[in-house]
């Protein structure tokens, strides 16, 4: 198994290396003529209106939170899915109870409106 991770490690290095080398090459080949207008921040062609801050909606945080919970739930279910073929029916019922508890929570947040983009 360590060999497989070694391959992945090498692949990670290569896949970071290839775009990096390409960008470096392009950096060398391209002209460099910065001036103040080119370097200014883009805002539909006019000067920047205010300091860079945005009205951060709470919706993003809610989506990330719900994603986190369901991600962890899925991770818990993966080993069970691998062991599925060797496990009797009542153990499958236990996993279904697991899913059902979290589905209850999902229904609650659905009704509460946490999933509706405003």
């Amino acid at each position: 198994m360590l060999n497989q991770w070694l391959y992945i490690g090498i692949f990670v290095v290569i896949s970071v290396f290839l775009p990096g080398v390409a960008i470096l090459l392009a950096r060398i080949l391209s002209p460099k003529k910065p001036n103040a207008i080119k370097n200014s921040v883009y805002e539909c062609g006019v000067e920047t209106f205010d300091k860079t801050w945005i009205q951060f909606r709470i919706q993003y945080y809610l989506y990330a939170l719900v994603f986190l919970i369901f991600d962890v739930e899925t991770v818990f279910l993966f080993p069970f899915a691998v062991a599925y073929n060797q496990v009797p029916l009542f153990m499958v019922m236990e996993a279904i109870i697991f899913i059902a508890i979290l589905m209850g929570g999902f229904l609650y947040i659905w009704r509460k409106g946490a999933l509706t983009w405003r």
């Binding site: 970071v16 775009p19 960008i23 950096r27 080949l29 391209s30 460099k32 003529k33 921040v41």
Partner: peptide
């Protein structure tokens, strides 16, 4: 695209800005 100028706007955060395309 290879020979276009890399215009770096003022005020960018150099770490994330340059690493993002690679990641």
């Amino acid at each position: 695209i290879f020979i276009k100028e890399h215009i770096i706007p003022s005020g960018v955060d150099p770490g994330p800005y340059h690493l993002a395309p690679i990641i």
